[in-house]
Amino acid sequence: MDLSLSTRTVGDRTVVEVGGEIDVYTAPKLREQLVELVNDGNYHLVVDMEGVDFLDSTGLGVLVGGLKRVRAHEGSLRLVCNQERILKIFRITGLTKVFPIHNSVDDAVAATD
């Protein structure tokens, strides 16, 4: 399965809905999307990962890169994920401390620092 990406705006947040597999082959597409959004002035991102079937360290690297970019503009990058097998990857790499992870897009959109 390939990677699917779609974006929409909710208030001052930009929600990126990701589906499929994020791996060494598809991660560059996600990176391009995040870079483009930040370059266009979207600094508060919500990455919805509910439709993600597979995530590896390349994908994690892209998300960390995205976080770095939005933070340079005092922005935020929040994740939406309820899937245990995906959450486990964030836990073993210690990235649960780096990313705010929410149960739903509504929660992520409503969240403030």
Binding site: D56, S57, T58, L60, G61, I89, I92, T93
Partner: peptide, 14 residues
Amino acid sequence: EDEDALGLAVITGL
């Protein structure tokens, strides 16, 4: 190298 380290961290964690 960071990505390489992250990949190895995932493997050794799993």
